[in-house]
Design a protein around this nucleic acid. Sequence first.
RNA 1: GGGCUAGUAGCUCAGCUGGAUAGAGCACCUCCCUUCUAAGGAGGCGGUCGCAGGUUCGAAUCCUGCCUGGCUCACCA
Length: 594
Amino acid sequence: MKDLEIRLLHPIIVAVKELYGADLPENQVNFQSTRKEFEGDLTLVVFPVVRFAKKGPEQTAEDLGNYLVKNIEFVEKFNVVKGFLNMVISDYYWLGTYAGAYQTEDYGRLTAGSEDPLTIVEYSSPNTNKPLHLGHIRNNLLGYSVAEIIKASGKRVKKVQIINDRGIHICKSMLAWKKFGEGETPQTSGMKGDHLVGKYYVRFDQEYKKEIEVLLAQGKTEEEAKKEAPLLTEAQNMLRMWEAKDKEVVALWETMNQWVYAGFDSTYKRLGVDFDANYYESDTYLLGKQYVDTGLEKGIFYQKEDGSVWVDLTDEKLDHKLLLRGDGTAVYMTQDIGTAIQRYLDFDFNKMVYTVGNEQDYHFNVLFKILNRLGYSWANDCRHLSYGMVDLPSGKMKSREGTVVDADDLMNEMVSTAQSISEELGKLEGFNEEELAAIYEMIGMGALKYFILKVDPKKRMMFDPSESIDFNGHTGPFIQYTHARICSLQRRAADLGTEVKPGSTLHAKEKELLKVILRYPEVIQEAANDYSPAVIANYTYDLVKEYNQFYQQVPIFGADSEQDKAFRIGLSGMVGKVITSAMSLLGITVPERM
RNA sequence: GGGCUAGUAGCUCAGCUGGAUAGAGCACCUCCCUUCUAAGGAGGCGGUCGCAGGUUCGAAUCCUGCCUGGCUCACCA
């Protein structure tokens, strides 16, 4: 459609000049696709032209319509409804553009060369004290998908994450394991490593609460009790020992982190996400400290009497922000400064995107400003892909209150639902166990991923664990199903040819389908610009919906001519390719049968 | 309190830089499997686009105020 608009832009400006002697500015040329209830493909909104024409809207539209039909070959006819000029674009235009698309390898996608700009996409970035939950799933799916979309838009992309493997939260799990674990390991317990460590994180909190109760009973205030509980002070002590590189503590830390990484790896693998580089907070917090020191020397930051280091951002309508604690230890911001600079040194990127929840909007705002003050102008090329939280009907997920939806559990549920639906429908005869398992996995994960990615990242979304995610309607399985249908057609048509032009004229449904197919390239660009997989997801749904109407209304094997039949088979194949391509941008694979 | 953000059908979501009677899915009610996979298709029901002003030929969309929810303003991450 874009191409069409570009080709009509100047003729319209010329028309206004010739007809009315006026200079119509480009931005007054306003197109939209014609509404379904009217005849036409493309509509020019003539209201903006009216004041140049000095005639009424309807007359202006008539004039322009006549001019275009006369002078532009592919404008076949037109009609005017109020101030709208509806143009019918001739079939040969659609077929010509379609033929080009049909022959294009990887239609819709651009392939980046080594000289093309490089975008870094950070996502996932978990803490190593507990397993991943639904919130992390949204993060991972978004980050992965956005990276794939940017890649398809013709840029180089590297995916990275920062692993928050350091800090008091890790020490809590470690301490609880040491005290109550009795040497339990993933091997002895049969638990996934991240879940095992998470179990002790929860255990810490339970025991800690008990201690607080005791202290309260002894007459302490709540604040005192929280501060003085022996478990907490022990954990803090453990952190200090870790920073001092105490052998035993570091060894335990390494062991437990390995358990977690093994667990994460299997979850990542199942989610289908991957990374080109991992950064570890245990490395980068030291780098951050160095840069803070430098900033202090240069007078960009300032130091209080207690030794803590701050930056004053009040002139940017922000606050004073702490960068180093009084005892010299690092805070979150410290390591983020170190990580960002290290990445720039490693990759010399043109753009960096952080996939992090919108609760950290302020943090990134501050981070980019600080980097700027340190003299890194590339901070202007950093973006925070700020996505909304996943809420439960009860509100926000809270790990301590046990209201989290565990990632592994959810994936298991999705796949087993896919299995029971598939078994009920019974369309998979002849599949062996392994193939069946693969299909169930594909459909269950497709449903989950689509459910999450179809929502605009910026908005927060609702997930109700008591209602299972749909497999009908606007869902991943619906799209997968359509692909399977097309494959079924193609199996039957294997020995028949395909054509890019029909024997007779284009059927209305064929034309509608062509129009949607032809939007794909611009949809990828739009999704890349907006960092929005939802754009791809909704587009794919439009395509599939349109295809199913075509499938229902237009006979394929029963077509009137061999050429029509071949054209429709080719068109179906093209739809199948676009489905496969678009879904892969969402990290969703599509089956040949289901 | 300051800052940011959202409020569209019973529920979950679309709606591009302002454009024609606001669209889907789920749920509910009808139809359609001797045409190719019914995880589908056709139709019905259902909306004061939070409220009130303003900008203009035209506002769900832009501006202002208000109401409601969320996030944030830590020597937490």
